[in-house]
Every structure is written in structure tokens, then in C-alpha cells.
Amino acid sequence: MKVGVLALQGDVREHRAALLEAGADPVEVRRPDDLSAVDAIVLPGGESTTLSMLLESSGVGDALSASLAEGLPAFGTCAGMILLARQVVGGRPDQRSFGVVDITVRRNGFGRQVQSFECDLAVEGTGPVRAVFIRAPVVERVGPDVEVLATVDGPGGPTPVLCRQGPHVVSSFHPELSGDRRIHELFLSGLRH
């Protein structure tokens, strides 16, 4: 299965490695044409304002928007979650988001880097997973069609950090950084149905 990794900026290499180990064939996506050959797309961690600008200038944004509308499954981590969310709070007014997952996220809602952390996370259907949160977004609202697979104690109480809507998966942490491939496998297993 060919899985695209949006390769404009961010931790592309870690996602490539995770996808390979989870049994997929990763393909870097930098131009609109690169999307034609992929069965799914991963939006990595990075800076969402930078990614948003580069999506626009490269033309990948419009192409990806069209592919998502046709049902291309997407997995977004941190900045990738922000890009896939229906609504973004605390971002820039011109910031792009594709809106395929019905959640509201607050950028950097967990705070600055000195508040970034790692912890064990109980994930529905798998055992505990080590989760790394880097200036992570906070999910403030979850729509009726969104399934919450894991939560942590956030600034305002239990906060969803791993969500699924149809074939799409989003996480406010970075499963690609911990060496544990079960979250990538969870996304890929959803594609095989």
C-alpha cells in the first residue's frame, strides 16, 4: 500500500520510517502530481503556519483538498491534526485547514516547549503507548461522528488526544517519535477494510 507523507516541512523522516516498519510503502509528497499514486496520506508534525503557506504555494493544498473530498484517508499528527481539523483556534486567520475531522483544536494548547512532555497513554484496543507531546494542540470540541480513542489530563481536565472519524486518524502527540508502531498500524488497519 502506497502511503504519501506530506514532505514540505516537519518530521517526515520519522513517519517514513514508521510506515515502512508498519508494512506500508511511503512516498514523499511535494507536488500536486505526487498525490496521484497514493492510497492514503500522512500529515506530519511541524509548524502548521509554515505548512499552511507551503501547501498554498506548492499547489499541493488544492490537490489534497480535492483528494480528501474524494475520500483519501488521512493520518495527521500534531500540526497534521491541526491541518485536518474542522476548526482551529489560536492560529493565524489565513491558516489553512482541510476540515475533514469534526473537531475544534487550539494551537499550542498544552503550552510552550518547557511544558512539552511524554507519558504513558491508555489507547482503546491496544495496550499503553508512550506518547510524546511537543507544543501540542488541545482538542476543545469533538463532533458526534468522532470516536475518541485516548485522553490525557490537559489544562482543562481530560482531553482527547487520539481521535478517529471514518478512515481518518488524528493525534495531538507524535507516535512517529517513540519507536512504537501501533498507532501507525491502527491507521493502516482501518484502510484494509
Binding site: A7, L8, Q9, G10, D11, V12, R13, E14, G45, G46, E47, T50, C78, A79, Q113, V114, Q115, S116, F117, E118, C119, D120, V132, F133, I134, R135, V152, D153, H174, L177, S178
Partner: peptide
Amino acid sequence: NPEHARGTARVKRGLAEMLRGG
């Protein structure tokens, strides 16, 4: 939450990973 570990090598290096290509 006291079980949330801050300032670990992985958390520190993690932000650098996010800046890659920028």
C-alpha cells in the same frame, strides 16, 4: 499530572525534529 515527564531528551530533541526542513 506528575507522571507527565518534561524536559526528557526525547521531548527536547522532538522540537528540533519538528523544525526540520524549515
